[in-house]
């Protein structure tokens, strides 16, 4: 295919500064609510959209949503991050899930929302995980239609996150960067660049992560994810797993520095989904991320 034949915007100035968020952030989870409440100087937070209960908009929320309301009261922008929309589901996105994501954005007065370039269910079964779509023309059409369907209900921009995957489809026609560029070109969506995913995929495919970055549409980055991972001791292939349960490895921070050098790290956040470390350790990771991305550290 004629990749890049119609991409005049790539010669335009980098759009850093046009991102709807800035600064250092963290993926808010109920387990670290206490720690996050004690951190000053956060530029933004992200919250899992599916964890928000919007059933009683008139009543004060219970559970996780309460902590998220606290963030808004502190004036911290909150980005709803969907994990179950299934933009790449061949059967189409679930209208109820789209409506929920849009309702989250309205309830939080969010500057943008984000979701994954992935599929989550097929044949009436949930995968319970984000699975990669084949990088084919057919899958691209499915994604474009899912993204447009979602954008139609949103009043704010949508950022798309390429996932970490342990396998590729045999029918892949595009390199990941080219596939993504075409998806963003056709939909006008922004990029949520997860440097840990880039690192994991490149390492597990035997590629150079810097070369992978070169082909990514870095001029469309809205914000950046950083997360920890590890090689699982029981994995006979020695693959790197993007677990969100382990510390952020130096190689991922080094890749973040590269992204910053290319002017594509306007806002950066840490994702940690479990085995939460003590507050001091979490602070340490945020400080390391701020240093790598040249952002104001939090206190």
């Amino acid at each position: 295919m004629a990749a890049g034949a119609d991409r005049p915007r790539l010669v335009a100035a980098r759009t850093v500064g046009a991102s709807p968020v800035a600064g250092l952030g963290v993926g808010w989870r109920p387990e670290i609510a206490g720690v996050v409440a004690g951190v000053t100087g956060l530029g933004f937070c992200e919250v899992i959209a599916e964890s928000l209960d919007l059933r009683h908009p008139g009543r004060p929320p219970a559970g996780p949503s309460r902590g998220v309301t606290d963030l808004r009261e502190r004036g911290i922008p909150v980005i709803p991050h969907g994990v179950r929309l299934g933009l790449g589901d061949a059967g189409g996105v679930d209208p109820g899930r789209v409506a929920h994501l849009a309702a989250c954005a309205r309830a939080l007065d969010a500057p943008l929302v984000s979701e994954h370039v992935a599929f989550v269910q097929a044949g009436g079964r949930e995968a319970g995980h984000l699975l990669p779509v084949p990088r084919t023309r057919e899958a691209l059409d499915v994604l474009v239609s899912g993204v447009r369907r979602t954008q139609a209900e949103l009043e704010v921009p949508l950022a798309l996150e390429p996932i970490a995957a342990l396998f590729d489809w045999p029918e892949d026609e595009y390199a990941e960067g080219d596939f993504l560029t075409e998806l963003l070109d056709r939909t006008g969506a922004l990029l949520l660049l997860d440097v840990a995913n880039v690192y994991a995929n490149a390492r597990n495919r035997g590629q150079d992560p810097s070369a992978v970055l070169d082909r990514m549409p870095l001029d469309r980055v809205a914000y950046v994810h950083v997360a920890g991972g590890a090689v699982h001791p029981d994995d006979p292939l020695g693959l790197y797993h993007d677990t969100h349960l382990d510390p952020v490895p130096p190689a991922v921070l080094a890749l973040l520095e590269e992204v910053r050098e290319r002017g594509a790290a306007p806002a950066v956040m840490l994702e940690r989904d479990g085995r939460h470390p003590p507050a001091a350790e979490l602070h340490g990771e945020l400080t390391a991320i701020a240093a790598a991305a040249w952002l104001e550290p939090v206190r």
């Binding site: 269910q121 097929a122 044949g123 009436g124 079964r125 949930e126 995968a127 699975l131 084919t136 045999p170």
Partner: peptide
Amino acid sequence: GPAGDLAARQAALVAALVD
């Protein structure tokens, strides 16, 4: 080969992974 019919390919993959 496996070209086309993305829905069936996705369903077969999910069934293999979780079922």
